[in-house]
């Protein structure tokens, strides 16, 4: 495979990799080689838990994954778009700088940890500590949209960016998120479809109603979500939404004495 990739190509056709039985190191090496050979569209078949796909890749590219990618998908990634036809695992978009990840199924814990830019859309449910320590910097404002439910400590330490939890396909009585929602949050915004019980909230945040600006931002994200997953965004927009904002940018300002 390496030899074949040595010649730079004017890539029009996608490069297909059968990941069956491949070690993650070999798979990622092949992806890097395909990119440096000039391919800009890569299709990975039979992916079954291989980790770090897209790690640190700064080349613009479209990577389609058939199967279940392993932990740390798109870690440190900077630019590419990854579409997962399947479920994802833990740590997707870990410390991601820019790019887009779209997961058709559900995904695991600690998604978007320290994410500084880019977008992550998950159609289904997600695990614990999702959107933890998301941040933003100037024009880089990360977006994380969860179609289903989120586990506990969602949006913990959040310092920037936009986190949306839609809670679709819930069984009756299932809460939108787990407890300690947005604990330690000191920047950014969280939108919830519906409300959560007060006792689920971290002490640093409060629930607010949406204003026109919120609707503009959220409306765009719902349209995008609808496009990716074939959900009727207009229907989603009819629902009630709540906004979570940190009450203080300095939740830990008065703890110390010198």
């Amino acid at each position: 495979m390496g030899c074949e990739l040595r010649n730079r190509v004017e890539a029009v056709e996608p490069y297909r990799i059968d990941a069956q039985g491949m070690h993650h190191r070999q798979l990622n090496e092949t992806i890097r080689a395909a990119l440096s050979a000039g391919y800009r569209e890569i299709i990975l078949d039979n992916v079954n838990g291989q980790r770090y796909i897209g790690a640190g890749i700064s080349t613009p590219a479209y990577i389609e994954i058939n199967g279940v990618p392993g932990n740390d998908l798109a870690v440190f990634m900077n630019g590419p778009t990854i579409r997962v036809h399947g479920n994802g695992q833990d740590g997707i978009a870990n410390t991601m700088n820019s790019g887009t990840v779209i997961v058709d199924g559900s995904a695991g814990d600690v998604l978007g940890y320290g994410m500084r830019g880019g977008r992550l859309f998950v159609r289904g449910d997600v695990g614990y500590r999702v959107g933890i320590h998301m941040k933003e910097y100037r024009e880089q404002v990360p977006v994380l949209v969860v179609g289903g439910r989120a586990g506990a400590f969602c949006g913990e330490y959040m310092a920037g960016g936009v986190l949306v939890v839609l809670g679709l396909d819930r069984l009756p009585g299932q809460p939108l998120t787990g407890d300690y929602l947005a604990t330690g949050m000191h920047g950014g915004v969280i939108y919830l479809r519906g409300r959560v019980a007060e006792h689920l909230l971290g002490k640093e945040v409060q629930m607010f109603d949406l204003n026109d600006q919120d609707w503009k931002l959220l409306g765009g994200l719902l349209d995008e979500f609808g496009n990716y997953f074939g959900v009727d965004a207009a229907e989603l927009k009819k629902d009630q939404y709540t906004k979570l904002l940190p009450v203080s940018h300095r939740p830990y300002g008065r703890l110390y004495v010198s």
Binding site: D72, R129, K135, Y137, G187, H249
Partner: peptide
């Protein structure tokens, strides 16, 4: 702010554990 890539004047919290 530019070097840490966070807004001017915002607290930079390094959590006790890495949450991953």
């Amino acid at each position: 702010s530019r070097t840490r890539m966070i807004p001017v004047g915002s607290d930079a919290l390094s959590p006790a554990p890495h949450h991953d």
